[in-house]
Design a protein around this nucleic acid. Structure first.
Length: 792
DNA sequence: CCGATACGCATTTTT
DNA sequence: TGCGTATCGG
């Protein structure tokens, strides 16, 4: 249904700015359409122009919904739309599946028995909760590995199979039984209930609950279907069943849906993506029009044709003929190295050549590999050869312990029923509420089927059996959280957040830790607070009012580490997995480690798995604009061993007309892996590089602090002094009476030596002292265990 | 609570 | 190999 009332002055010359097939895709808006967008064919262009076109033809911004997979894609698209139509796009719903559905669910939460403050559990929360459930059921977590249980549950949810249906399906039960996990359905069911009890949803639940909402409440569905009169979906090849189902629900009536994607780039089936959604789109949406964008604007002819020759070997695909009108370009060098180490040296050499010959920046260059572990060799070599690089794919900012702790406080303050946040922080910083107490609270909560917080609210009512001292600590904790909770609507996220960090004692705990790690932690906390500040300021500047902690959390819980603001565009070589490279492009791309059992992965055996690996290779090659270089090594260091490796069978899939097959480029057969490298690059150094690169993944409103990382590598000396350890258990020192000890005492500890007692806290078993040792630094000693003599 | 030590295990990971 | 986690001991 297109209403042709062009009331906005037409500013976009569609005929001129789009090619023929793009134009047809953009201007077709009568019913469902599928746009098959080959790599580099201007997919985002079509989407944004189409939205502009819809706006020009009678659709109001709020009638349009545009869904993406990543925040980054959503942001880019929004920017482009804004620059095209300006304020005319205000009110447009554009975002990731998860963020849009999360928003809908906040509005409709009550209908489903949640509150609008519900928590979004991340993967770690999910695993942690599953772990507790497995433990409570007294199952062996060697058999019921939380990770695989989580995967199984996620799988079910992606197919909209809820616990009841799961348990009622003999096929699932048998499959689980044969996998030695007959209780899986019960874990699933308990997990489901616990999430509900905690007023929490995991990522998959955001889809599941939206589907349920629309399923069971037709009036609600109608409201949204009426509102979203036109829906556009990006990267349709990556949708799972649940997403596909929701799109169908919403568009059943209007039939106004345009999905864009490339089946050849479907590489996330292990996350539940179903390539069939795009392959069978025309069956699911009767009368759907198909448009194919086959002109590649990105790469040279050679690269495009080589990629075509590769993907041609896949059976399961939509036929298309991607072509390029760019120059022929050079053939793709396929280089065999002696070892992984030499492979990296060859790549380094080539990078230097390229840079010299073509004036490329480092940031125009990417190294793409199948597994993260492969980054190491390149790090080592680039570091040694002073090539600047940046690795993607470490811990994201929000996954660091100290940041997670603070976020957990925020979460609990907003949603006191949040079980995982509760468990995480009830004893952080240590306040004498240990595992035993938490265990009792959990048991109690389970027995009464209430949340942990409910137990804390009425400990006597639910018969929580703890001693008086513990109870008063619990009360104190409860009051603290409750007091902040009261301030949620009064104070902005920054003010309240700061208050929480201060009053909780988190700051105090961190303060004084002058180790490099401690300093880094403090910096992270500061960065988070700065982020809070920026968030509030941004909202304020934009004239909004949603600047509370709940708004901050809503935003933050759906951010990932790839949502980098990257305001600082330092000139560095990009190192990343092929998966993370999807959607990106570089002048020069090195696809490394093209070996059997590595790429394709040794885990991929079935035809469809192999086809997915082939698509992955296709994605890798098509990232390159002008130079694509493929390397493989004859031997590779893996799991502490040097293994022989053969070239990837995929290399034979490439038409060698486009290849330039070379043997080793650099003659360095004698190159050896040095156990101790010359420069201070210990393992710690590596991991700190990882941490730093992850820091680059801070979201838009987190201002990057310039952490000059000097990986102070405390290389452990080769332990040759092992024998001196068994110190005679000196009979003289024994656990002392806590009564004898007070602040100001001086003690001599069996291992730490002389130290001054700074404070003594706790009672009975839990009494502990903070002692500053003259040589060993500050320690907390549990007096029950500590072995020392009181000197004065 | 914290640190040392042992043990098992090891793809990819948009949210 | 080397990491993340479980476990134990002070």
């Amino acid at each position: 249904m297109c209403i042709f009332t062009p009331k906005i002055q037409k500013m976009i010359d569609y005929e001129k700015e789009l090619n023929e097939s793009q134009l047809r895709a953009v201007t077709y808006c009568e019913g469902p359409s599928l746009v098959i967008a080959g790599a580099g064919s201007g997919k985002t262009r079509v989407l944004t122009y189409k939205i502009a076109y819809l706006l020009e033809h009678g659709y109001k911004p709020w009638n349009i919904l545009a869904l993406t997979f990543t925040n980054k894609a959503a942001r880019e698209m929004r920017e482009r739309i804004t620059s095209q139509v300006g304020d005319d796009s205000v009110g447009l719903w554009m975002g990731t599946f998860h963020s849009i559905f999360a928003r809908i669910l906040r509005a409709e939460a009550a209908t489903l028995g949640f509150t609008s403050n519900y928590t979004i559990y991340d993967a770690a929360d999910q695993k942690s909760l599953l772990k507790s459930i497995i433990k409570e059921m007294e199952l062996d977590d060697k058999v019921y590995k939380p990770a695989s249980v989580a995967a199984q549950i996620s799988n079910a949810k992606n197919q909209l199979i809820l616990p009841d249906r799961y348990a009622a399906n003999p096929a699932y039960l048998e499959a689980d039984a044969s996998r030695k996990m007959p209780k899986l359905h019960e874990i699933y069911s308990r997990y489901w209930k616990r999430c509900h009890q905690a007023d929490a949803m995991d990522f998959d639940d955001l889809l599941v609950h939206t589907a349920e909402l629309f399923n069971y409440y037709p009036d609600v569905l109608k409201r949204y279907a009426d509102r979203f009169r036109y829906i556009l979906v990006d990267e349709y090849q990556d949708t799972n069943y649940a997403q596909h189902y929701i799109i169908r629900q919403l568009t059943q009536q209007s039939q106004n849906v345009c999905v864009v994607g490339d089946d050849a780039q479907s590489i996330y089936s292990f996350r539940g993506a179903r390539i069939d959604n795009i392959l069978n789109f025309t069956k699911q949406f009767a009368g759907a029009q198909i448009f194919k964008l086959e002109r590649n604007y990105r790469s040279t002819k050679t690269i495009v044709q080589a990629a075509n020759s590769l993907i041609d070997k896949n059976k399961n695909q939509i036929h298309k003929e991607v072509f390029s009108e760019n120059g022929e370009g050079e053939r793709i060098p396929v280089i065999e190295a002696y070892s992984d180490l030499e492979e990296s040296a060859i790549v380094a050499q080539r990078i230097r050549d390229l840079k010299r010959r073509e004036q490329l920046n480092y940031s125009d260059i990417a190294i793409l590999y199948r597994t993260n572990a492969q980054s190491r060799t390149f790090e080592e070599t680039f570091r040694r050869e002073n090539l600047p690089y940046r690795i993607y794919g470490g811990l994201s900012f929000y996954q660091r312990k100290e940041v997670k702790d603070i976020i957990a406080y925020f979460r609990l303050v907003l949603n006191p029923n949040d079980e995982e946040a509760f468990k995480r922080i009830i004893n952080v910083p240590a306040r004498g509420i240990g595992a035993t107490t938490v265990g009792k609270i959990v048991d109690c909560a389970n027995a009464q089927t209430v949340s942990l917080w409910n137990v804390l609210s009425n400990p006597e009512l639910v018969g929580l059996n703890v001693n008086k001292g513990t109870l008063s600590k619990l009360y104190k904790f409860r009051e603290m959280i409750a007091a902040w909770h009261e301030l949620l609507d009064e104070q902005d996220a920054y003010v309240l957040g700061q208050q929480i960090v201060r009053e909780s004692g988190l700051i105090a705990e961190l303060f004084g830790d002058n180790t490099p790690e401690g300093m880094a932690r403090q910096e992270n906390v500061n960065e988070l607070l700065t982020g809070l500040h920026d968030f509030v300021e941004t909202v304020r500047e934009e004239g909004g009012s949603d600047m509370g902690l709940r708004d901050f959390l809503a935003e933050v819980s759906l951010l990932s580490d790839l949502d980098t603001d990257d305001g600082d565009s330092e000139d560095k070589i990009t190192l990343m997995t092929v998966h993370s490279a999807k959607g990106l492009e570089f002048d020069a791309v090195f696809v490394v480690g093209m070996e059997r059992d590595l790429f394709p992965s040794q885990m991929s055996n079935t035809l469809s798995e192999l086809e997915e690996e082939r698509r992955l290779f296709y994605v890798a090659i098509t990232r390159a604009k002008r130079h694509c270089v493929i390397t493989h090594a004859k031997s590779r260091y893996r799991y502490g061993q040097t293994e022989m490796s053969n070239p990837s069978p995929f290399l034979k899939d490439l038409d060698d007309h486009y290849l330039d097959i070379q043997s080793s480029g650099v003659e360095r057969p004698s190159m050896e892996r040095s156990r101790v490298s010359i420069n201070p690059v210990g393992n710690r150094g590596f991991s700190s590089v990882h941490r730093n690169s992850a820091e680059d993944g801070a979201p838009v409103f987190i201002r990057r602090s310039s952490t000059a990382s000097s990986p102070v590598s405390s290389r452990t000396p080769v332990s040759s002094v092992r024998s001196s350890v068994p110190s005679s258990k000196s009979a003289s020192s024994s656990p002392a009476q806590s009564g004898d000890l007070h602040a100001g005492s001086v003690i001599e500890h069996e291992r730490f030596g002389i130290g001054d007692v700074l404070s003594v806290t706790g009672t009975g078993e839990n009494t502990k002292a903070v002692v500053k040792f003259r040589h060993a630094g500050e320690k907390q000693l549990l007096l029950k265990f500590a072995r020392f003599k009181i000197i004065s």
